[in-house]
């Protein structure tokens, strides 16, 4: 028969473990599980009606107009992910390398690059909204000023430029984060290895591809995974800069906005559908969890190979 009597030590452990477990259960596990449950019911406003099985999932994936909305939002998320991979992580790596090499002014730039990360998203969004203003925006005025007036655009109003403009704002805002992680990774590279390389070659390119990149691979894993999760949960910037409808006509719509609109409604639609919203949330959650898991294990494996 197992020992059930609480000894002093057991009590201690229980007392220490139960509060955090209860916290996690109440505020993390319970909401996730209930969102899963909500997705299987029919809703009228916020009132739960009948159990409908997989109906909600079927609707968001296969029934018009939801089907094309889902595809459009998902497609935009994919674009955001790849664009940010280049703009934010690529640039971050280059910046980190420049800072690590202690180019002139590195001290100042180390702070300057990271500063935007500290700004609140709201501030960044409004700042860039002003930059892109068709009449008074810095971007258009500068273009006109240097004789490139024909390049001046209503940046946030065209389907061709709106999403790109918001992505640039996001990259500017967050580029300091991958920079910091890469820089930390580079600073961990042992001096002996670098000395050894210096004996062999003077080429920066060889240094980057053969030594630095493989040795910061763990940093890359972290940064890529976080970017993936971030890109598919993207909400604030498109919400403030494009609006809840992904204006113009859905070209800045992403899954986050689409979920919010579906679950909570917006003024123009007047419809709230918690069932469809929850189904979307569940799908987004599963997708992110699986892909992030795959990315992490694959990149981990690659770290060792390199």
């Amino acid at each position: 028969m197992p020992q059930l009597r609480m000894t002093g030590r057991g009590l201690w452990i229980t007392a220490l473990i139960v509060p955090p477990l209860a916290f996690v259960a109440l505020f993390i596990v319970y909401p996730i599980v209930s969102a899963f449950a909500y997705a299987f019911f029919d809703w009228q406003g916020l009132r739960r009606l009948d159990f409908v099985g997989l109906e909600n999932f079927h609707t968001v994936l296969f029934v018009e107009p939801y089907r094309s909305w889902t595809i459009n939002a998902f497609k935009n998320n994919v674009i955001v992910f790849f664009a940010l991979m280049v703009l934010q992580n690529g640039l971050g790596f280059i910046l980190a390398y420049a800072l690590w090499r202690e180019l002139p002014g590195a001290r100042f730039h180390r702070i300057a690059v990271f500063l935007p990360v500290v700004l609140s998203t709201i501030i960044v969004a409004y700042l860039f909204k002003l930059f892109y203003h068709p009449l008074f925006g810095v971007v258009n005025i500068t273009l006109k000023g240097i004789g490139l007036g024909w390049l001046a655009q209503p940046w946030l109003g065209q389907s061709g430029t709106a999403l790109g403009s918001i992505i640039v704002a996001q990259a500017w805002h967050m580029v300091g984060f991958p920079t910091l992680v890469f820089l930390a990774g580079m600073q961990r590279i042992p001096g002996e290895i670098l000395d050894a390389v210096r004996m062999e070659t003077e080429s920066e390119w060889v240094k980057i591809t053969k030594i630095v990149w493989p040795l910061v691979a763990p940093s890359a894993t972290i940064v890529f995974t976080l970017l993936f999760v971030g890109a598919f949960n993207w909400f604030e910037l498109p919400y403030i800069m494009g609006g809840l409808d992904g204006s113009p006509f859905g070209s800045t719509d992403v899954l986050g906005l689409y979920f919010y609109r579906t679950a909570f409604g917006n003024v123009s639609a007047g419809q709230q559908d918690f069932g469809l919203g929850s189904a979307l949330a569940v799908l987004i959650f599963i997708f992110i969890a699986i892909v992030a898991g795959v990315i992490t294990t694959r990149l981990r494996a690659r770290e060792i190979q390199l």
């Binding site: 107009p65 939801y66 109003g157 065209q158 389907s159 409808d245 204006s247 113009p248 006509f249 859905g250 123009s268 639609a269 007047g270 419809q271 559908d273």
Partner: peptide, 23 residues
């Protein structure tokens, strides 16, 4: 036309944006 999905408002807003953009 705001009693179902898609609402007339959402449709006309997006479609007019397309019209203004010449699309």
């Amino acid at each position: 036309f705001r009693y179902g999905e898609p609402s007339g408002s959402v449709l006309i807003q997006g479609e007019m944006q397309k019209l203004f953009a010449g699309e």
